[in-house]
Nucleic acid binder design. Structure first.
Length: 110
DNA sequence: GCTGTGACTCTTC
DNA sequence: TGAAGAGCCACAG
């Protein structure tokens, strides 16, 4: 699975996230074999919007279900808007019932 | 080859 | 219980 770079793997996993579901940076990092590279996952999203296939970075949130990266969207409210369109309720930049919408790659993909 | 950076996570006070 | 600090890994310059 290390045929591609860590970033590319992150994009792959994020694209596999089904609509109406969200995952966390740590979950992706751990799934890729780097449980401590959670920050890298978020940083990888920096170029997510520049990729050929759009990466649903709005489906990636922190461990608390907060839209920590929403400020990086254009406009920042886009992340919250996209999640709402998928049926996810976001209040105060936080996902409601995050546990219910949580999508674990190790569980769903594995 | 080394240093800096980063949309996080965990442990401790 | 709540908040703060340090640690971690991987990419870019």
């Amino acid at each position: 699975m290390d045929n591609q770079n860590f970033f590319q793997q992150v994009y792959e996993v994020v694209r596999l996230v089904p609509p109406g579901r969200v995952t966390s940076y740590g979950a992706i990092a751990k799934f890729l074999g780097a449980p401590g590279a959670s920050r890298q996952v978020g940083w990888a999203m920096n170029g997510a919007g520049s990729l050929k296939p759009p990466v649903p970075a709005h489906r990636v949130v922190n461990r608390n279900g907060e839209l920590s990266g929403k400020h990086f969207f254009t406009p920042p409210s886009l992340m919250e808007d996209l999640l709402n369109q998928e049926g996810i309720t976001v209040v105060n930049d936080k996902i409601q019932n995050f546990k219910t919408h949580y999508w674990d790659p190790e569980v769903e993909l594995l």
